[in-house]
């Protein structure tokens, strides 16, 4: 048995080797992320975290989020060491309130991993019924072409799809918007959306991804998650194109959208 090389002249050479070792990859799968793997880059990213600014800006696409997820996902950084460093952002003995949100988000990962450990079969199966007034069979099994090619009639959604496909990363809020669009606007099964995310996210994780999708869908939460254009404009501007004319399907009050998306009423 042959030991595989670790020395490459450049990234292209490494890429060619990865491809040679990966006959199952489709020839159309050619995109590589600018995010580089490895502990060295992970540590550099870790040194940049700002857990205090995170607390008040994390919901904005331009907010001070950590970008640590692919490193945490593969154990390159442990949740423990990230938390230990975050604790140093407040002097010892002072209230931890300013960093509470950051540590709570780390805990979300721990929580999903523990749920996964207890119930591995929840990853691909509805944990609960949909609370959307629809039955599972009312949702399509496959992702429509216009979503895969970023050609939907909503410019912001197309921006999120393209970002996902080129960078392998999406901000948490963008994941929520795109997942809700797929499941509720287009009535596609959450599993199809989850598979699409897992194929592109560098941090794609069966538990964090699929259980979050079920949370959006309402098969693992008390109600479906959806949003409106006003919310998108607040959090995703200026990164995403948020003009109403380019995103008409997302416009309206929450009541109007609920009536459109869930005409049979939301159950709990």
């Amino acid at each position: 048995m042959e030991i595989q090389p670790k020395d490459f002249a450049d990234r292209d050479a490494l890429l060619a080797h990865v491809r040679a070792l990966s006959p199952s990859l489709s020839p159309e799968d050619v995109q590589v992320s600018d995010t580089v793997g490895g502990r060295q880059v992970g540590e550099k990213q870790l040194a940049k975290i700002d857990p205090i600014a995170y607390g008040h800006s994390r919901n904005y696409l331009g907010g001070k989020v950590s970008y640590l997820s692919p490193y945490i996902r593969h154990g390159i950084l442990s949740l423990n060491e990230v938390r230990n460093l975050a604790l140093k952002a407040v002097p010892q003995g002072e209230a931890i309130k300013p960093i509470e949100k950051f540590i709570q988000e780390l805990a979300w990962r721990d929580f999903w991993q523990r749920v996964y450990q207890q119930n591995p079969d929840w990853i691909w199966h509805d944990v609960e019924d949909y609370k959307t007034g629809f039955a599972p069979d009312d949702y399509s099994d496959t992702l429509p072409d216009d979503i895969q090619t970023a050609q939907t009639d909503c410019a912001a959604i197309n921006y999120f799809i393209t970002t996902l496909q080129t960078t392998g990363y999406l901000h948490n809020h963008a994941r929520m918007y795109l997942a809700a669009y797929i499941v509720h606007w287009r009535r596609v099964k959450w599993q199809a959306g989850a598979r699409f995310f897992l194929a592109h996210l560098l941090d794609g994780d069966p538990a964090s991804n699929n259980l979050s999708f079920q949370w959006v869908a309402s098969t693992f939460s008390n109600k479906p998650y959806f949003f409106n254009l006003e919310n998108l404009q607040k959090f995703a501007h200026p990164q995403a194109p948020c003009e109403e004319g380019d995103n008409q399907a997302l416009a309206g009050s929450y009541d109007q959208l609920a009536a459109r998306l869930f005409p049979y009423g939301v159950s709990s």
């Binding site: 490494l14 490895g38 194929a199």
Partner: peptide, 25 residues
């Protein structure tokens, strides 16, 4: 697991720094 090229490159890059021998199979 559904891993595309992006993820596989990220993983291989990570392995370069680790004290492990990589085998394919």
């Amino acid at each position: 697991m559904g891993y595309g090229l992006k993820r596989r490159v990220f993983l291989y890059e990570t392995l370069l720094e680790l004290p492990v021998d990589i085998y394919a199979g």
